[in-house]
Amino acid sequence: MQDYSFDKTHIIDIPIEKAMTTENLQVFYGDNHAMHDASLQFSRYRITALIGASGSGKSTYLRCLNRMNDRIATVKGKIMYRDMDINSPKINVYEVRKHISMVFQRPNPFAKSIRENITFALKRNGIKDKTELEERVESSLKAAALWDEVKDELDKSALALSGGQAQRLCIARCVAMKPDILLLDEPASALDPISTAKIEETLQQLRKNYSIIIVTHNMQQASRIADYTAFFHMGHVLEYDRTEKIFTNPQIKATEDYISGNFG
C-alpha cells in the first residue's frame, strides 16, 4: 500500500450547532494504538458519514462515542457532549447511552417478540404506562419504516424477521428511547439493495429529529445521505468536510485515491 502522510490533514470546524465533539481521541487495544488524535465536530440534526478502508478505525472511533469500548480498550482524550467530557470516569455510562444510542453492523434483535424488543429497555427505564408504551412502539416502528410490515404481528418473535426488517427493528428500538444522537456502524452492509434503500430512506426521515453518525463502506451511500464526511486512514482522520466537497474536491491525496478507487 502506498504510504500516505499522516501530517497533512484537512479537518473543518462545524459552523452550526454541534451535537458532540471529540478532542484528541486516542484508543489503545493493549499495545495496539488503533486511533490517533481524532478531533471531530458533529453537527446537530445532520448526518455525518465515516468512511475509510477496512481496519482504518471507524468502528473503533464510533464505539468510543457512547463508551461501548469501555471494557475492550483504553480511550484517552475528550468526548464533549453538552459541555461535559463524557469520557470521564465520573460519568454514568448508562445515562450516556440513553442519549447516544448505537445500531450495529449485524442486526441483533433480542430473542423476544417484536413488541418486547422495543418496550424492554423502556420498561427498565421506568416507563410503565401501557398507552405510552404502545404509542412508542407504533411511533418508533413508523420512524424506522417498519410499521406497515409488522403491525399485525407485534407478538411474533423478532428472530423470525428478515435481515433488513431486523435491522430496522434495531433502529426502531434505539429511536424509541428518544436519544439525542444515533450512531450506526455499517447498518446496511449485511443487507440486500432493497433493504438498504429502505434504511437510507429511514435515515433521511430520522435526520429531522436526530443527529446521526454513520459508518459506511459504501461511497454512494455516503454521498447520497451524508451532510458531512470524515475519511479515516490507519487510525488517523485525514480529511473532514462537507460531503460534496469531499467527493468533488478532496484536499488530501489519500481521500482522492480512496474515493476514485485508486487506493492502495
Binding site: R82, K90, N92, Y94, H99
Partner: peptide, 9 residues
C-alpha cells in the same frame, strides 16, 4: 440531563 449524566442511577 447534565445532572443525570453525572450522578449514579
Amino acid at each position: 440531563i447534565k445532572q443525570e449524566l453525572q450522578s449514579s442511577s
